[in-house]
């Protein structure tokens, strides 16, 4: 097997707060291979978002080591290794959809002549062709989030880090976006780290599910998803799916995630 794309070893992160130290991450070790779709699931405070933020160099670990493509997270960021999708689309209202996708290209200093190709390609990927000239407020919440995924993909990062990207959307839109995300993943062979609250979402999307629990934030279980890569939405009613979902629930219970 090839080298892991993201490698975390004994990662510790302690926030100093007025109420004393908070152990956001404790002794977290995890390897994410190229092309993996890894979901992080667990209750609030379990460190799943913090882990993603450490990988993205938005937080500094207080102990342990993490590498992205064999580099430190900062180096990886400068090498445009990853795109980050936040819970809210965060599109700029004064820019069109094209303008928003162009934003990271401008900032990263891509030559102007290449902008159009990049934008066209990612608009196709998220199925928003023809909406490029629209402004964010003219789009539904789901479309806005797709635009924000397109923006994260615009500069050809191999890794996509997604922090509850569909958390603010209703279930019907969410199902649709889940399907589209799988399709996109299949087409692009990106490595995806995906934080979620939803067990069905985690099971439906991932190749591996990382179950975490709080106080201190730690990994309690890593579940290999045995579902085939071809996943229609109704796969969620099959016994195999329910079996894996059950294991995730067990993992959460083992970590006392339901205590509060």
């Amino acid at each position: 097997m090839s080298e892991p794309v993201i490698k975390a070893e004994n990662l510790d992160l302690t926030f100093q707060t007025n109420d004393g130290p908070v152990h956001a991450l404790k002794d977290v070790s995890l390897d994410i291979m190229k092309g993996d779709f890894v979901s992080f699931i667990g209750p609030s405070g379990c460190g799943k978002t913090t882990f993603l933020r450490v990988v993205a160099a938005l937080e500094q670990p207080t102990g342990g080591a993490v590498s992205v493509n064999g580099m430190s997270p900062e180096e990886a960021r400068k090498a445009r290794a990853y795109g980050y999708v936040f819970q809210h689309a965060g599109l700029y209202p004064w820019r069109t959809i094209r303008g928003n996708i162009q934003l990271p290209l401008e900032i990263m200093g891509f030559p102007k002549s290449e902008w159009k190709d990049h934008i066209d390609r990612v608009l196709d990927l998220v199925d928003l062709r023809g909406f490029g000239k629209k402004f964010p407020w003219q789009l539904s919440g789901g479309m806005q989030q797709r635009a924000s995924i397109a923006r994260a993909l615009a500069f050809d990062a191999d890794i996509l880090l997604m922090d509850e990207p569909f958390g603010a959307l209703d279930e019907i839109v969410r199902d649709h976006l889940n399907e589209q995300l799988l399709e996109l993943w299949d087409k692009t062979h990106k490595t995806i780290g995906f934080v979620t609250h939803s067990i069905p979402e985690a099971v439906y999307l991932s190749t591996r599910i990382v179950v975490m629990s709080p106080r201190p934030g730690r990994i309690t279980d890593v579940i290999e998803n045995t579902l085939p890569r071809e996943r229609p939405l109704d796969i969620r009613d099959t016994p195999e799916f329910l079996e894996i979902a059950h294991r995730v629930r067990e993992g959460l219970r083992a970590g006392h995630a339901y205590d509060d």
Binding site: A57, L58, K78, Y82, Y84, F86, G90, L103, I107
Partner: peptide
């Protein structure tokens, strides 16, 4: 944070 992820 978003700006940061683009090394702006």
């Amino acid at each position: 944070d978003q700006m940061k992820t683009w090394s702006a």
